[in-house]
């Protein structure tokens, strides 16, 4: 068995713990348990930014950039729906430039649903979703063009970004758009911190949707992921202690947590 291609028993146990934690939290939240969710300034700024567009009569731009269909896209759609709902209520123009054709179909569904939630389903314009290109810099160039032509009052950049992140953010900066960005790519966070008004870092992107909606499923996910991270932090602490003891007392044969986690299925015999 190749440990790099297939999960080890330790990883399977961790996966099952994650599932169990999530189901347990979901049950608790549905039963009425209320979790505290800390304030995320970047998400608070979303409503203010859309309100600013309403005052100035400027459109709102939201891009999921290079995000393909997957968990990150679904996390982005949570925020997109909140933005689109506000846009529909304020009767503003929404522009959603797209990079991935697969993601576009999912995003369109989300935006349409947001308009319906706002009671303005008939105002939804499918052409607000603009497929630009499936090529990174062609997409960036199309985005810049749209930004300079439409001059949106607010630009939201949520999802997966690569080298084009600074090009997109600078284009928004040039037209004076209020910008909120969220990326799971640590390399791009620095660029967003420099160019955007608010930046959501890493997992805040996933937490933002729960923060906005306070829906049981999303809150349960957030709580479960926090507990799971605590568990991993515990494993790290145990690992540090074990490694320290092993270095101080080499005569002791201490089994490291990572060795337990990465042992293959052969420990159970053939």
């Amino acid at each position: 068995m190749n440990g790099f291609e297939h999960a080890t028993p330790g990883i399977v146990v961790l996966l099952l713990v994650a599932v169990a934690l999530f189901l347990w939290e979901l049950r608790r939240v549905r039963a009425g348990y209320s979790h505290f969710i800390r304030r995320i300034p970047g998400v608070d700024a979303v409503e203010a930014a859309v309100g600013r567009c309403a005052e100035q009569g400027r459109p709102v731009m939201f891009t999921t950039a290079l995000t393909d269909v997957g968990p990150v896209l679904y996390a982005c759609i949570g925020i997109l729906r909140a933005v689109a709902k506000k846009v529909a209520q304020y009767k503003l123009k929404l522009i959603v430039p797209q990079y991935s054709p697969e993601a576009m179909a999912v995003v369109e569904d989300g935006v349409r649903a947001a308009y319906q939630d706002a009671g303005r389903g008939s105002s939804f314009d499918p052409q607000s979703l603009v497929f630009l290109s499936g090529e990174q810099f062609a997409f960036a160039s199309g985005y810049m063009g749209l930004m300079h032509r439409e001059k949106p009052g607010a630009a939201f950049m949520f999802g997966v970004f690569a080298a084009e992140s600074l090009v997109l953010a600078e284009a928004g900066q040039q037209v004076g758009a209020r910008q909120v960005a969220a990326s799971v790519s640590p390399e791009q966070v620095a660029f967003f911190v420099c160019t955007c008004d608010y930046t959501l870092i890493g997992e805040e992107l996933f937490g933002a949707s729960a923060y906005v909606s306070r829906e049981p499923v999303q809150v349960a996910t957030l709580a479960a992921q926090d507990r799971f991270k605590l568990l991993i932090c515990g494993v790290i602490v145990v690992g540090v202690v074990c490694a320290t003891i092993a270095s101080l007392h080499p005569e002791l044969s201490i089994v490291m947590p990572h060795e337990l986690l990465l042992s293959g299925w052969e420990v159970f015999g053939k």
Binding site: L15, A18, F22, G70, P71, V72, Y74, A75, V184, G202, E203, L205, F206, G207, T221, A224, Q225, F228, K229, I232
Partner: peptide, 10 residues
Amino acid sequence: LGAGVAGLLL
């Protein structure tokens, strides 16, 4: 780590 765990649960 944070993004990975969040992605896994989602």
